[in-house]
Design a protein around this nucleic acid. Sequence first.
DNA 1: CCGATACATGTCAATAGTGACATGTCGTGT
DNA 2: ACACGACATGTCACTATTGACATGTATCGG
Lengths: 177, 177
Amino acid sequence: MSLSHALLGLLSVHPRSGYELTKAFERDLGRYAWQAGHTSIYPELNRMAEAGLVEVTHEGARGARTYDVTPAGREELRTWLLTPPKQAKVRNEQVLRMFLLSALEPADALVVLHRIAEATDQGVTDLRKVREEHAEAPVTGADGFGQLAAEFGLRQYEAVRDWARWAIERLEREQGA
Amino acid sequence: MSLSHALLGLLSVHPRSGYELTKAFERDLGRYAWQAGHTSIYPELNRMAEAGLVEVTHEGARGARTYDVTPAGREELRTWLLTPPKQAKVRNEQVLRMFLLSALEPADALVVLHRIAEATDQGVTDLRKVREEHAEAPVTGADGFGQLAAEFGLRQYEAVRDWARWAIERLEREQGA
DNA sequence: CCGATACATGTCAATAGTGACATGTCGTGT
DNA sequence: ACACGACATGTCACTATTGACATGTATCGG
């Protein structure tokens, strides 16, 4: 399952509690890559601890347990990342909507496209800020996500925005003709 | 559920059998937007027929049933597409792998990045062909998918490829330093 | 005519994931 | 003192999804 690998990845950057992991999913990971709520994260952490992939290294206030990756977990993550996925699972409602746009009448499609263009434009603006904040950190290691991920998200947004504008122009040209 | 809307979208382009829908998922939709196998498609079609969103318009050889969208189904699809999703569900294993790249040692990360760059480069080449084949068709209507979707996939691949190259360069520069 | 292959649909058990509900703690402001 | 919000973890019923298994039919090449 991918969720366990996502958790291993986050923990290998630095140890965290389930609660903090949940927030990480809400913030970055869940937006672009893989969403999960605390109701799947906590049970999964327990399963992984039992399997020896992670371990509790510290118990803090309010019953908080800090998890860290074990050597076995690190090896599992590395193997997974280095193993080529024949056909990775994709499930993106946003992209689905774009595919289905062709089913709408041009006037309706234009409404949706304009909304997409605006939303992605906002996303680009937001991520530019994030990128600047992390500009000097090294790409791998403790702050890696702020780098590779932000840049990835940024380029993703730009691509969608440009596509939406292209589609708008094409549709308007067709309607005019 | 998104699967039903995906089916409505495909059927609204032109009527098809469950088998043909399954192939459509294997070919385009499932690659970029929403994957589903025949074991979820057939039961879903039956549910949707019962709900009056689709209907069987023709029975062919080998028990094949051609489904078409009803007016109610068309309205449902339109409403869904025009209703803004606050926070669409995302689950993309490929993107997850990219996020987790930071957890690898630079040498390992470079191996993966090179593989991504190659694979997406191939994807770009393939989709350019698709785009040229459909260059004259109108953007909405019967052949819409070949247009908006191909262009979207193309730009998506290009963005990932360029990102991978950017990441490779950054990593190599860091390692050299 | 026979065998392979693509066509075509289905069930069912197991797994994964969501949303509603439940419980308790610590710190901060009033 | 106390209320409130963020912290922190959990269960459980329900729904969605997958993979294994099952079944039968046209078509095409040899």
